[in-house]
Amino acid sequence: MELMEGELEQIQSAVGEVLEKFDADREQLLPILQAVQGRLGYLPREAMKMVAAAVEIPEVDVYSVGTFYNQFRLSPPGKNQIKVCMGTACHMTGGNIIMDSFERRLEIEEGETTKDREFSLERVACVGCCALAPVVLVNEEVEAKVRPTRVDGILLGLGKELPKKEARPEDKAQDSAVPRDVSTQEAGDAR
């Protein structure tokens, strides 16, 4: 993930402050990473490198811990956070297809954030409304019985212009049938 302007300085000062509060000890690695993520919302590579240097362990060991625990995220949270449920019921009713649809549309993979930081995509395990499977949480709002067509509707509703249409001329004829100015909810359902 490329850093934005001024972000590096922000990371450095935040991590510096966090590191002051903890012993530079390997046993403190998890609390340190938690505090860093608490400040920054995610674990940027620069931050992990700083922590590794402070705790005096190889950088890859910090990375190893950061990628092991689900709690840690390595990409910044997007302005819109999309969580696709992969619990048992959602999985059985095609949660992975929904995930695929988001991945295709946003051109990112699970756990990643779009370059413009508008969208982040992650998987969750059961949000507690299995009767509505497959479920997607869009900024903590439940979307029920999601179908791949609804994925486009959700994204349109969040202001995504689905720019891939231009990039993929073969889709164009089909997609242009959807009027752009219709409320996005309907646009999604119409297709």
Binding site: R45, M48, K49, I57, P58, E59, V60, D61, V62, Y63, S64, T67, F68
Partner: peptide
């Protein structure tokens, strides 16, 4: 050296360098 470690978990677990770069790009 400290160049490689076991990263991710479950099915995705593998030996990799920091940031999952290639070994040549790592330390």
């Amino acid at each position: 050296v400290g160049a490689i470690g076991l990263v991710r978990r479950g099915m995705g677990r593998k030996v990799a360098a920091f940031g999952e770069t290639t070994l040549a790009e790592s330390n």
